[in-house]
Amino acid sequence: MKKFLNLMATNRSFFLFIFLIAMFLVFSFVIPEFSTIYNILNMTKYGVEIGLLAFAETLIIISGGGGIDLSIGSILSLSAMVIGVLAGRLGMNIVLASILGLIAGGLCGAVNGFFVSFLRMPPLIVTLSTMYVYDSLALLIAVDKWGNPMPVSNFPYGYFFIGQQTYFNIPFQVIAIFIPLALILHFLLSKTTFGRYLFATGNSEVVARFSNVPVKKIKFSVYVIGGFLAGLAALIMTSRIASARPDLGAGLNLQAITIAVLGGTNIMGGEGSILGTLMAIVVITALYNGLQLAGISSIWQVGTLGIILIGSAIANIILSRKYSSVE
């Protein structure tokens, strides 16, 4: 038992896993349709987009020095509008439009990365500013010929498989995009030199500089990767809801950060894992789904997110005071 509690205190992924099981049991007991295979598989698709953003924040926050991206949802909005306008209004080939949408996301990230890494500006200031700029740009390109920013929905039919197709009830974007990407990112962080450099930079920029770590490149690249992930989330989301709106990413900035932090990413940098963030995504997705099935108003969703975050932080503090032992 002591060992179990010790693991709970020191390993965030394990903690979230136990939490998830407990939540599953409660929801299954209260709501019969919750634990059906159909529901479980179906709910996964709602975790994909916010999940990609949370992965982006995980990398960016680990890079340290106050690393954070407040513009991640705005990049999603902008990328979505790029795809929507190019394909829906200008009639560009959808594949090409999608690629350009991804590139737009990467470019937005590169702008953030440039200011943060090469001009050494505080990430909070940079991404707070670009958040507004990207939001405006998304609105700007959404403007139709009558002068109003409007959603675009006339995507070609072939586009929808990304966000709406399922295989044996498993959504396409989960099996073909999200899971492989989670594996790649996990691999990148835990097995490669990039991962080593990222944790080194996040732990201490000075020591990293003294240790021949290409600090600037690393900081720049996490923002670029973050932008790409937001672009990818935009692609999936526009396909799933068959519409591109300039406010798609509204409210997702902070949710993504919250999930990353819930997953054990240290807001001071240098600590975090893809597995932890993944567990947090699963917990939050299941929670939202359970609340919805229980007939609780969706107004409560973000409220519970906040409660879970602070609750898990408190539980963690109590557990680690009592049970974590220094080896």
Binding site: R196, F199, A200, N203, S204, V207, F210, S211, V213
Partner: peptide, 21 residues
Amino acid sequence: GSQGLFKALTINFNVTIPIIE
């Protein structure tokens, strides 16, 4: 502390970081 070592990381990590490539 502030220049030489990543104190919150392992010996292994610290020793090999300059030559990791």
